[in-house]
Amino acid sequence: MKPYLREKKSFAFEDIPEDTCFEAGYLVTVNSGWRSRTPQIDNEKCIGCGQCYLYCPDGVIAMDGKTPVIDYDFCKGCGICAKICPKSAIELR
C-alpha cells in the first residue's frame, strides 16, 4: 500500500492511541517545500526506460505505461533523476 495524504491531520487527546500502533502509510505533510529546483520531463526525449523511476530515493516517479509522472507533493528536487536519465530528458528548473 502506498502511503498517502489524509484528511485528518491533527490529533486531540481522544484520537491519540493508547499504544504506539497506528495505520500504516498515514501522511499529514508534504515535502514539496524542500525543493529549490523542480524536475521537468521532456516527453519528446523520454524513451520510457524507467531509470528515473528506479533510482528515485523518494519513489515519487511513477511509470504510466512508458511515461514517467512525478508526484510534486513529495519530490524533494534532489536531481538524481536528471543525472540518471540516459537521454537527458529531465531538467531541473
Binding site: 500500500m1 502506498k2 530515493p57 513529495f74
Partner: peptide, 25 residues
Amino acid sequence: ITAKNLDKNEYFYGHKACAGCGGSL
C-alpha cells in the same frame, strides 16, 4: 527485475530523509 515488472506500489513514501538519501533508496 526491471522497471516494467517491479511492484508498482511504493511502501516507503513521504519520508523526511535528506534529498538524495541513499539509505532511503
